[in-house]
Nucleic acid binder design. Structure first.
Length: 409
RNA sequence: CGGGGAGUAGCGCAGUUGGUAGCGCACGCGGUUUGGGACCGCGGGGUCGCAGGUUCGAACCCUGUCUCCCCGACCA
């Protein structure tokens, strides 16, 4: 893509109503636009970045047998009354609205209820199980206070997968494979080393649930980290019993701030009982499906990655997250040469953002840095047949031949 | 929802004991520039968050209200 075709533009100053670094950088660089508190529009660069994050999660969900679907955002009151969660006193983040007829509707804050109800149409035998439907969708939660830019919105992207298993043993096996899939997701996003599988309250259905918590000073959660074992305990269950279960002692744990970037949860038969989701077992008896839920917030992750991978010049996206891999700058009367390289790289499958504007070099360099594109290539008259190459993460520049340049990408 | 702070041009800001709004960035035109956000000149753009009130006159004073940010509370 050419910068001249990009309708967004960068800002020198961040809006004064944003304090969170992730929001300041993402707005300044033209990745997102703030519609209202906790509600952001994804602009071309931001949309591509979000899709890259989603793509990684999608691959890992498909690897463990996920079936991608797209559930509705509009929700029937009756469906949620079945589980008792329509009541604002039970679930206090509802956005509710009405049909023209007057019938009440809600904007989905999560999807256990509609999906469990839906699966009644498709699960009738043990032969139908296990099954793992999932989706990427916008969730609506009427938080009393949204904060921290993209990290805690009222409207946000969520990957939610739900497992329907025959029994606890089958569920446990899948739960473990999801745990491993989550590890791979965070590794691929470049935050594996600072993301901890964290023991948290299991509610009334299981002893524990697990959160994936990424260490960050801007985190809302406090966790106790065991760096050698690569696990952590959420403050809410930081007690002697849990430490005994995990075989750790207080003096091995370090108190840290962290951002919850995912969770996996055993639901047991809570929802399959509420909706009477039963299947015929091999012995002819009827049994309730055994369920689990598994969430990751791609938009929160985008905020976290922006916050984490940044320096004083702007964003510093990891290679596989960046909206484009290459930022191509032509200086002086070199548009033809730049165009040629642009076409060649594009044909090779390298995504290129070509700054073809009639701007001074300094302005182009500043925007390349602010947008955080991993590789920068400069074409200019003084380089002759060669190209200047620089990584966003390094300060050194190298003059390379075209062949050497392709070797870098 | 409790406490604190703030709403003036797309963004950052200034503003007069109350007298009908200005600067920088961005934008348009002309010129000079061209390897780290150039410079000069000219120009366009704002019902001063909204609604009432006080006043001859309100961006400014009063009341209400909406919105945004921060701290706390809340948070499968």
């Amino acid at each position: 893509m050419k910068v001249s075709q990009l309708f967004t533009k960068t800002l020198r100053d961040a809006p004064s109503d944003e304090v969170a670094k992730n929001a300041q950088l993402l707005i300044r660089s033209g990745f997102v636009y703030k519609e209202m508190a906790g509600v952001y529009t994804y602009l071309p660069l931001g949309k591509r970045t979000l899709e890259n994050i989603i793509g990684i999660i999608r691959e890992e969900m498909n690897n463990v047998g996920g079936n991608e679907i797209s559930l509705t955002a509009l929700q029937k009151k009756e469906t949620w009354e079945t589980s008792g969660r329509w009541d604002d006193k039970v679930l206090d983040v509802w956005f509710k609205t009405k049909l023209a007829s007057g019938a009440e509707l809600g904007l989905a804050p999560t999807h256990e209820e509609p999906l469990t109800k839906l699966m009644k149409s498709y699960i009738s035998s043990y032969k139908d199980l296990p099954i793992y439907p999932y989706q990427f969708q916008i969730k609506f939660r009427n938080e009393l206070r949204s904060k921290s830019g993209l990290m805690r919105g009222r409207e946000f992207w969520m990957k939610d997968l739900y497992s329907f298993s025959k029994d606890q043993a089958e569920h446990d096996t899948f739960y473990e494979s999801m745990s491993e899939a989550y590890d791979r997701v965070y590794d691929r996003l470049g935050i594996g080393d600072i993301t901890y599988k964290t023991f948290a309250s299991g509610g009334s259905f299981s002893k524990y649930s697990h959160e994936y918590q990424t260490l960050s000073e801007v985190g809302e959660d406090t966790i106790y980290v065991h760096k050698d074992k690569k696990i952590a305990i959420n403050q809410e269950v930081y007690n002697d019993e849990v430490m005994a279960d995990l075989g750790v002692s207080k003096d091995e744990l370090e108190e840290c701030k962290a951002v919850e970037v995912g969770n996996i949860f055993t639901l047991n038969t809570k929802f399959s009982e509420d909706f009477n989701l039963q299947y015929a077992a091999e012995d002819g008896t009827s049994k309730h499906a055994f369920m689990g839920s598994y969430g990751i917030g791609p938009s929160r992750l985008m905020g976290l990655l922006a916050e984490h991978f940044a320096d004083d010049k702007g964003l510093v996206w990891p290679e596989n997250i960046a909206p484009f891999r290459v930022y191509l700058i032509n200086i002086g009367d070199t548009a033809d040469k730049a165009h040629e390289l642009y076409e060649e790289l594009t044909q090779r499958g390298v995504t290129v953002l070509w700054d073809d504007r009639d701007e001074r070099p300094g302005a182009k360099f500043a925007d390349a840095d602010l947008m955080g594109i991993p590789h920068r290539i400069v074409v200019s008259e003084k380089l002759g047949e060669n190209y200047e190459y620089k990584k966003r993460t390094e300060s050194a520049t190298n003059v390379l031949t075209k062949e050497e340049l392709f070797g870098k990408l």
